[in-house]
Amino acid sequence: MSIPEVDTQLGKLKRSRRLKQGLALGLLVAVLVVTYFGLGFVNFEVDEIIDGFPNFVDFIAAFFPPNFEAMTIYTTDNGITGLEGIWASFSDPGRLAESLGSPRLSLVRAAVVTLLLGFLGTVLGFLPALLLGVLGSEQVTPFPFNFIFRGIMSAIRAIPAIVWIFLFVPFGPPSQATAVLAIATDTVGNLGRLFTDELEEIEEGPIEAIQSTGASRAQTVGFGMLSQVSRSYIAWTLYILEINTRIAISLGVVGAGGLGLYVRNQQDLFQFQNTAAGIIMIFVVVLSIELLSSRIRARLRPSEHEGKGFLQSLRDLASPGKWLGLDRDKGEKS
């Protein structure tokens, strides 16, 4: 039995499917064409990569074994090289303290500088980000005026921190101080945008409820809106702290100090084993911040926190699986 309407509908579906397939094919061809000619445009020669690969392997081999001689002032002065530098440094807290307290070069101090650049940039950028982020939301500032604040954030965001540090040259050449300024500026653009987006998605109900109590406009923003997003704001700030730690390293490479500067200097001096030590330190610092931040952020997610006592949370902190996000509580939330 054939129903004409069904046949018509079937034909329509077939045509629409063919159209979609055609579009997908066209898109794929476009991507391939741009990639092929693009590689030529930027002089990317696959042959060169292949030919250079043995050199690359030799080059990387020169990084081993990593030399942690510069770990602390103690290891530098006593010529303790290689991996022993780590043990010699951490076996005595006094040696760590000595390095932290001295302006002389040490990996320990460089790591702290890098961490502080990210931290201070995040802290200084937070309040302006909060202000612009809240004002950029249509919930708070009526359209189109909210776009003034969104525009400011977009403009800031368009320029990366590594360019901001050169725009701050009137305040001094790339240094730790201008790096903090550059990271803070970058934070305003990125964190502010996240704040705005978060505010656009809140529930209207509590806002109306707070209004109905006779609260002022500012109180309505504070208690009806920001109270709904406070946890996510903390979570986003931690996420930006993670990113800022990485930015601190790239700013270091252009002169802001810390681990980035150490790696670049050792590379320029062809001290590849020292470079390797610096890279391992970067790895440790970035991964630590990332793990810490992601664990705290997971704690801020209400569903995971619910029905869990303080002691349980402490036990979770001690569990390696939890840190790596391997084992998740199942059926915790009914």
Partner: peptide, 26 residues
């Protein structure tokens, strides 16, 4: 229409907002 991330007490307390200035309440 409660703010779900706040405690029962904090939610109840928002009823007093109109009696308090912005900074006192924030």
């Amino acid at each position: 229409y409660l703010v779900e991330s706040m405690s029962a007490f904090q939610n109840a307390l928002t009823g007093a907002l109109a009696r308090n200035g912005f900074f006192r309440s924030i």
